[in-house]
Amino acid sequence: MMFISGSFAPAGPGTIWKKSSPDRVEIEAYKKLMKDPLSSMVPHFYKDVEYNNEYFIEMQDLLHNFKNPAVMDIKMGTRTFLESEVENAKARSDLYEKMLKVDPTAPTAEELETKAITKLRYMQFRENLSSSAELGFRIEGFKVHGEEPTKDLKCLKSRDEICRTMKQFLNGSEKVRLLLIARLENLKAKLEKSTFFRHHEVIGSSILIIHDGKKAGAWMIDFAKTLPLPEGVTTDHRSKWCNGNHEDGYLTGLDNLIHVLKQCGKSRSKSKS
Score class of each variant (00 low, 15 high):
2 M>P: 10
3 F>N: 12
5 S>R: 13
7 S>D: 10
7 S>N: 12
7 S>K: 13
10 P>Q: 14
12 G>Y: 04
13 P>H: 13
13 P>A: 12
16 I>N: 01
17 W>P: 04
18 K>P: 07
20 S>H: 05
23 D>A: 15
25 V>H: 01
26 E>V: 04
26 E>H: 02
29 A>M: 02
33 L>K: 01
34 M>F: 09
35 K>T: 11
36 D>V: 10
37 P>S: 10
37 P>W: 12
42 V>L: 04
43 P>I: 05
45 F>D: 01
50 E>Y: 08
50 E>D: 11
51 Y>E: 14
52 N>V: 10
52 N>M: 15
53 N>T: 05
54 E>P: 08
58 E>R: 15
61 D>C: 14
61 D>H: 14
62 L>V: 07
64 H>F: 15
70 A>E: 01
72 M>L: 10
76 M>P: 01
76 M>N: 00
78 T>D: 01
81 F>T: 00
82 L>T: 04
82 L>H: 08
83 E>F: 06
85 E>R: 11
86 V>K: 11
90 K>C: 08
90 K>R: 09
90 K>W: 05
92 R>F: 07
94 D>S: 13
95 L>P: 11
99 M>A: 12
103 D>R: 02
104 P>E: 08
108 T>F: 09
111 E>K: 05
114 T>G: 04
115 K>S: 12
115 K>R: 15
121 R>H: 06
123 M>T: 03
124 Q>L: 11
124 Q>N: 13
124 Q>S: 09
127 E>A: 13
128 N>I: 00
129 L>M: 14
130 S>W: 03
134 E>A: 09
135 L>W: 06
135 L>D: 06
136 G>W: 02
138 R>V: 00
139 I>K: 06
142 F>N: 03
143 K>M: 11
145 H>R: 09
152 D>Y: 02
153 L>N: 03
156 L>W: 00
156 L>P: 06
158 S>V: 03
160 D>K: 11
160 D>F: 06
161 E>L: 07
161 E>M: 10
162 I>E: 02
164 R>T: 09
170 L>D: 02
171 N>K: 15
172 G>K: 12
173 S>M: 06
174 E>D: 13
177 R>N: 05
179 L>H: 13
182 A>M: 11
182 A>N: 13
188 K>W: 09
190 K>P: 00
193 K>D: 04
198 R>M: 07
203 I>C: 01
203 I>T: 06
206 S>N: 03
207 I>P: 00
207 I>G: 01
209 I>Y: 06
213 G>P: 00
214 K>N: 13
218 A>R: 10
218 A>Q: 07
218 A>G: 10
220 M>K: 01
221 I>K: 07
221 I>T: 08
225 K>A: 14
225 K>G: 06
225 K>E: 11
227 L>W: 10
228 P>V: 09
229 L>I: 12
229 L>H: 08
230 P>H: 01
235 T>V: 15
235 T>L: 03
235 T>F: 02
236 D>C: 09
238 R>T: 07
238 R>Y: 00
240 K>Y: 10
242 C>W: 10
243 N>F: 12
243 N>Q: 13
243 N>G: 09
245 N>F: 03
246 H>N: 08
247 E>W: 03
248 D>S: 06
248 D>N: 05
248 D>R: 03
251 L>Y: 02
251 L>F: 03
251 L>K: 04
254 L>W: 09
256 N>A: 04
256 N>V: 00
257 L>D: 00
261 L>H: 03
270 K>C: 11
271 S>Q: 13
271 S>I: 06
271 S>L: 12
273 S>E: 12
273 S>K: 14
